[in-house]
Nucleic acid binder design. Sequence first.
DNA 1: AATGATGATGAGAATCTTTTTCATTACAAG
DNA 2: CTTGTAATGAAAAAGATTCTCATCATCATT
Lengths: 139, 139
Amino acid sequence: MDNQDIRKAGLKVTHPRIKILELLENSSQRHVSAEDVYKMLLDNGEEIGLATVYRVLTQFETAGLVTRHNFEGGHAVFELDRGGHHDHMVCVVCGKVEEFIDPTIEKRQREIAKSHGFEMVDHSLIIYGHCSNPKCSVG
Amino acid sequence: MDNQDIRKAGLKVTHPRIKILELLENSSQRHVSAEDVYKMLLDNGEEIGLATVYRVLTQFETAGLVTRHNFEGGHAVFELDRGGHHDHMVCVVCGKVEEFIDPTIEKRQREIAKSHGFEMVDHSLIIYGHCSNPKCSVG
DNA sequence: AATGATGATGAGAATCTTTTTCATTACAAG
DNA sequence: CTTGTAATGAAAAAGATTCTCATCATCATT
């Protein structure tokens, strides 16, 4: 992931784009909202407008560099595409997100789509539950 | 599904709640946004405020009468819970939604959650693709 | 059937997320 | 280095949802 990825996407290599891509690569949180990105950039002394953050994230999504997720909560979160596709498991108490991939499910999805006359282009699987943290488990 | 369901949820049986529940039962669209509900009620001559529609849908969700889905598009859609759980397949071109249920996937999900130390309470699986309508297919 | 406590409603304001507008600035090809 | 075009920032706008608060309806009790 470097500036060539931006160029290959047909986008000019600008300061905001470079910084946003860097941030997505280095962030400890894998799933960040546009607001998160904006604030983290501010913390790093980068004065990049929120509108630009939204624009760039959307462009990165179109270019296949990041994936947008519509989890619960009324706002989208973005995640850098590090090659492999995966699904998500979200703790409904603490919000912790774990990633997983299961070949059985991947395979069944394609079969099911086909049997309904759909050609699958993407999918989203989110398991909601209580994570292993004692604070999050049910009584 | 009748007024007793509203009462059982600990809610008063009011005119807006009755009409919203009726509408969800009789609507030809299974997945409707709050705005959709508001407009359909207006078409039926029911002057129910948009804020009330949001409040009631949220209460119905809490009561387990309806399910809220965060598909793409920046707004939530609601669906009457007709007993059985199911997953969704959404056409990325025309927006058509089909429902399905697959025991293999259901079973694997529980196993995967458990293997990550999660106790699954819910899940959301959405397959995006091109539906069989010629206008929606690729190529 | 009347009463009264409490919950529910409607209208609009407020909030939050995201997109658009537009004047200014920066990239990148020649 | 010039210049066309794309990109940016700021603010406004748009869209979705929630909140506030005065008024009204429901329901358990008279």
